[in-house]
Nucleic acid binder design. Structure first.
Lengths: 226, 226
DNA sequence: TAGTACATAACAAGCGTTGGGTATGTACGC
DNA sequence: GCGTACATACCCAACGCTTGTTATGTACTA
């Protein structure tokens, strides 16, 4: 019986692993990878290293699981923009939503972004982790390329580039914006991030439609007005 | 008297510090921040930790100096594109050159990029390092904003955005491209990086000139052809 | 009674840092 | 020119501490 024990149901193995991973996230957001130690994670949980080793054979395994879970969480849970755009969104609205969901527009997603940026160092030094990351980004690009392709067919995006190039370029743009927003949050507040992304997408519009004025195409605009 | 001593002139203090920093870079590119230990750096130099502590009071001081020097080196030494554009280049050519010089187009600059990306983790966890980085990126943005402003006056860039927004967006784009190129070098070879950047800049062109076809404006094109 | 779920303690290895020792200069009085 | 005096540059050994990992003990559950 622990005084301040907020432990979940005893014996709930998978829930415990997830809880441990959440502690890993907290440590990573606060101290970065250099500060990620088993004792720090255990302290965050109010437990000891013995608990950790009971659920994970090694620190590396713990880390990989935490990153995987973060990826899943990021892909499945919040996604306010993708949700708002509708589950069956296609073309430009879907692409816009996917990009918006990458940006650190809320404190929670900023924490997630912070972890990803932190993990790049460890990943670049560890081929296995680097492979995980490369696969993740490739998957995201493929998804966005499909949206871009649809958008091209709908006349929403310029057709003088391949969907793959459009997706790669768009992902570069938001990834870089994430980095800048993390280092200079005051200079890149959420509104400005949104505005910069919107301007970027506007430049990708089909030049044939450009004469209409760029917000007037109606069906391509998402519900967000702000 | 050391058997294989390739030590520089004895007593050349600053040269030795620079040499130590170069060893830091090598360790960083090969093992990342997690592998950056004084013993590893010393080993890379063929020296001992005693040498390091003779020139630097602490590991942190050593790291900050190495990053500063890398920044200087990157800003002052190679710059093939800025050179090619001419020392008095202005407007779009200058902006293009500045952006090209950030991309990891050669193995050497890829190593440099690798170090920067790695340093983001440590920097985000250390306010002082974060401040250094933020200042660096802000300076680069200011420089590029000046180029963008000139480009606008020359009719090379669209005028419906502020130079600051143009610079921030452009820096985001290249930073993100750097990250993607590091994780998936096969998918983002130098030619593709160049092409993506060129396409990005083309979209930023003044719409008034767009009807001419986008490579034909003559004076804005750098010497680079492919 | 068995087995799971932990805490606790100890381990060797590696860390940044410190201090002592030893060459290799350079400066200077004679 | 030479010997002493001092500073620089560096190696070497060791410090205390933290790390990931392992082994052992103990409580709870079924």
């Amino acid at each position: 019986m622990y005084a301040v024990a907020m432990t979940p149901a005893r014996g709930d193995h998978e829930a415990r692993r997830a809880e441990v991973s959440a502690a890993v996230w907290r440590v990573l957001t606060e101290r970065g990878f250099a500060g990620l130690t088993l004792r720090a994670v255990a302290g965050e949980l109010g437990a000891t290293t013995g608990l950790l080793t009971h659920y994970f054979p090694s620190k590396r395994a713990l880390l990989r699981y935490a990153l995987d879970l973060l990826d899943e969480a990021h892909a499945a849970r919040p996604r306010p923009h993708t949700e708002a755009a509708g589950p069956d969104a296609e073309g430009l609205p879907a692409l816009r939503a996917a990009l918006l969901d990458i940006l650190p527009l809320t404190p929670e997603s900023a924490a997630g972004s912070r972890i990803w940026v932190s993990s790049w160092d460890a990943a670049l030094a560890d081929p296995e982790l680097a492979g995980d990351h490369a696969a993740r980004y490739r998957r995201a690009r493929t998804r966005m390329a499909a949206f871009a392709s649809a958008a091209q067919h709908r006349g929403e995006l310029r057709t003088d580039r391949s969907p793959e190039d459009l997706a790669g370029a768009a992902q570069s743009f938001v990834l870089g914006l994430v980095v800048q927003a993390l280092f200079a949050p005051a200079e890149f507040p959420p509104e400005r991030q949104r505005a910069l992304l919107e301007a970027y997408l506007a430049d990708l519009a089909d030049p044939a439609e450009a004469t209409l004025g760029r917000s007037g195409s109606g069906d391509s605009a998402s519900g967000q007005v702000h």
